[in-house]
Nucleic acid binder design. Structure first.
Lengths: 221, 221
DNA sequence: ACCAAAGTTTGATAACTGTCCAGTATTCGA
DNA sequence: TCGAATACTGGACAGTTATCAAACTTTGGT
């Protein structure tokens, strides 16, 4: 278990040259993680990937853990931006908006970056509290976005029921990652799974009755 | 990328003492992987975990890759056995059998072993062909078991439609792993998600019409 | 143009990695 | 019980790891 530091990582680099170097290091670090995996994620491999000396990478990121934290912060920020954009979809019904979010999520899951990144993060989160916490915060915001649309589709549901349905929908979609993601065995089935997801998660959100989830749990507790 | 060897790994150990040692090594290797993660999965750490000398582990498993392959073979065999048992559920309707399989899968996903093991395997599969292939074969058999029940519930579906639905159901359930699995952030929601899964995946399998999936894909291609 | 701060190079450190091997101990069939 | 096969020990090997520090170059505000 790692120390859990809640402070936001400070991105190094003061002079222009420094910030450009830091950018190059982060870009190389991500490509190493995605193309070669966590085992190859070493300072030396990253330095080689951006044509730098090991000592220079080590100067900007004195601790390897710091590099990981800054990298993750950058990545999650870019995902949050994408997520914010999906909320600002005007001229669409609640149903169409939920369909859009589902399509966007599954489209993103099929990308190389997301498939590789999140499978690695889920594994690292098992024994790295910093990563576990950042992943949790990210998915909380995903659930919130989905929840807004679920609540709009079915206003009688309680906040907790909305959270439960959002979790179900989100988790179901994320499950596509190791099976239908980038270069995964059933990637060719993604259109079918995306179609079923859009249809049935909307149907689920619309037709669940208040109190029905509790009733289902009791039946088979 | 690793070399893809299709031959089944040969478990070392000829004398009784040797097989017992091999068992102890494999048990220790698994516990290291689950308790400390892939980064700690070293010969020395494994040897320490079972109170052996490094040279002895290295004698039984001259290559580290060999240890991984034998370990995975053992693990997947035990999962296959569990899966076979789930098929032999007599005196149950097709609907009840699908419900049972769903409950079993999600119950298993919530266990420490499965949560930790498969998150690690999904990550390792990104860059290790042997692991990727074994994981694929395992899930193929999972899909087949689910498919039998789906076909029984809805006999008019084509084999490909049955496969697609099985993939959807399986992937959706596996998605619970990083969110509702062992010590994961939303583990306390597992009863609710299990109830929704049992109810709605059965409903899905029963009510999808032949040709409906293709129609859904066309609508939003 | 100066010059302190920032950035970079070079080389070293100790700790760790998988693999190997000569020597020794144990096992178990003949 | 003998002895060849098997199992185990202790140590060594070359290569890798993250981190550090002294010397050198570049930067950019004054």
């Amino acid at each position: 278990m790692t120390e859990l530091v809640t402070d936001a990582p400070v991105r190094p680099g003061v002079y222009l040259r420094g910030t450009e170097t830091v950018d190059a290091i982060l870009k190389a670090a991500l490509s190493v993680l995605l193309d070669e995996g966590a085992a190859a994620f070493t300072i030396r491999r990253i330095a080689a990937a951006c044509g730098m000396k090991v000592g220079n990478v080590s100067y900007h990121f004195p601790r390897k853990e710091m590099l990981i934290q800054v990298l993750l912060d950058d990545l999650f920020n870019s995902y949050d931006v994408k997520l914010e954009l999906s909320v600002r979809q005007p001229n669409l019904s609640a149903e169409e908006r939920l369909r859009t979010v589902i399509a966007m999520c599954l489209d993103d899951i099929a990308s190389k970056r997301t498939t590789r990144l999140f499978t690695e993060l889920w594994a690292l989160a098992n024994h790295n509290d910093f990563i576990a916490e950042r992943v949790r915060i990210f998915y909380s915001s995903v659930h919130e976005v989905i929840g807004e649309h679920v609540a709009a589709l079915n206003p009688r549901l309680s906040p907790d029921e909305v959270r439960t349905l959002s979790l179900f929908i989100s988790a179901s979609m994320e499950g596509a990652t190791p099976f239908l993601g980038y270069q995964k065995p059933w990637a060719n089935k993604m259109p079918a799974i995306a179609a079923i997801s859009a249809e049935w998660f909307v149907k689920l959100a619309k037709s669940i009755e208040p109190g029905e989830i509790s009733r289902m749990i009791e039946q088979r507790g």
